[in-house]
Amino acid sequence: MGTKIPTREGALCAKLSELGVRAAPYMLVVQEMCARHSDEHILAATEIALEKKGSGIHIGYIAAMLKDPGKSSGESVKQKHTDDRSRLPRHAVGQSNLIRL
């Protein structure tokens, strides 16, 4: 049997697990991060995340930092949802579907 050549995702996850980040190469978030960012960029974001939260963090926290640099909390996501709802057109509602019991 031949030796396995590690994928980029696998090599990155090995480095991340050494730092105390929970990640696996089969995770979609890891694959998306590798497609969009260099290893150096991901590891730099990891260092910042580890300074803020400590070891044992999930890779999703780092992915959120990379998607919206400067805003690593959930506040940006909440604001985005309210903005999206305000753009929806208002539709007139006909009869109510409620039935009195």
Rank of each mutant, 00 (worst) to 15 (best):
V77F: 11
K71C: 14
D83I: 05
G56E: 02
L50T: 14
E51W: 10
S72W: 01
D68Y: 08
G70M: 03
K52C: 06
K67M: 06
T82S: 12
K80C: 07
M65Q: 02
K52R: 09
A64D: 12
G74I: 01
A49K: 08
E75L: 00
I57G: 02
Y61I: 13
A49V: 08
I59H: 08
A63V: 06
P69N: 14
I57W: 03
K71V: 11
D68Q: 11
G70F: 09
A63I: 03
D68E: 12
S73F: 01
G70R: 07
S55D: 01
G70I: 07
E51N: 13
E75A: 00
G74S: 06
V77H: 13
E75M: 00
S72A: 01
G60F: 14
L66E: 06
H58L: 00
E75I: 00
S55H: 09
S73W: 00
K52T: 11
S72E: 02
M65A: 02
Y61P: 03
L66I: 08
A63N: 09
A64V: 06
G74C: 00
I62C: 08
S73P: 00
S73Y: 01
G74M: 02
D83L: 12
I59D: 10
G54P: 05
D83A: 15
A63Q: 08
S55M: 08
A64E: 12
P69A: 14
K80R: 11
K78W: 05
E75F: 01
D83N: 10
G54T: 05
M65F: 07
K71F: 06
S76N: 09
K71S: 15
I62P: 02
S76C: 02
A49P: 10
D68A: 10
P69M: 12
H58E: 00
H81D: 11
L50Y: 15
A63P: 08
D68I: 09
G54K: 03
Q79D: 06
K80P: 04
K67G: 04
Q79Y: 02
G54E: 05
D83M: 05
A49Y: 11
G60C: 13
K78P: 01
I57S: 00
K67Q: 09
T82R: 15
D83W: 03
P69V: 07
A49Q: 08
G74T: 02
D68T: 11
K71Y: 07
S72C: 04
G60R: 11
H81M: 10
I59G: 06
Q79P: 02
D68M: 12
Q79K: 00
K78D: 05
K67A: 15
D68K: 13
D68R: 09
E75G: 00
K71D: 09
H81G: 08
D83Y: 07
I59A: 07
V77R: 12
K52D: 13
P69T: 09
T82D: 07
L50V: 11
G56V: 01
K67W: 14
D68H: 15
Y61V: 12
G54Y: 06
E75S: 00
L66S: 06
I62N: 05
L66D: 04
I62M: 11
G54L: 03
K80E: 10
K53W: 03
Y61D: 04
